[in-house]
Amino acid sequence: MSNAERIRKLETLLSRVTTRRSLPRTEHVSEVSAPVVTTPSALKAAPPKVEAPAIAPVIEAKIEAPAPVVEAKIEAPAIAPVIEAKVEAPATAPVVEAKIEAPAIAPVIEAKVEAPAIAPVIEAKVEAPAPVVEAKIEAPAPAIAPVVEAKIEAPAPAIAPVVEAKIEAPAVVLDAPNHERFEQAPLPVLGAAVAKVVAASKPARPATFKALVARALTLRATK
């Protein structure tokens, strides 16, 4: 999706859920100071999901949505423990496709997607095939900031745990350079800067236990 398309998508969304006034985009967003959003027909009220189909303990996984939330998901389809993973939209913010996913057997601790004010968040993601500790996507205050496609991805080039990686967006974030390693990313993000933290390569997860063990046993104490 190009920036222009993102902006159009955002403006379309805002025009549906904020006010009927036709204003420049910034003012238009600023007008949304009251909980005007109920359930816009333009946003499908897809039921949020909390899924843990494997043997993973999931502790305090939450999806709280007084505002419209479309396709918000917390998924732990493998044997990963997920502790305090949250998708929250406690104000008037629409959250579209916010996801916290832990598709591998990695622990995810306190991964959060939060939109506590009136900021729309579109396609915010925390994906964690690797261990993620306190990864956050926040759009806190003054909260008139749209966040478009903010991502924290940690496909773990090696063991690459992500510790306290944050994307904070009190200002508009529409695009960002793609960093190969999260260590290189200047976080937190203020203003129109980095919105993506992407690790280099996604390791294939062995489909069977024997293959998983065989892979683990290739690691040797060489140093």
Partner: peptide
């Protein structure tokens, strides 16, 4: 018991 994978380590 639960299993965790850290990189390739189990």
């Amino acid at each position: 018991l639960r299993l965790e994978r850290w990189g390739d380590a189990l």
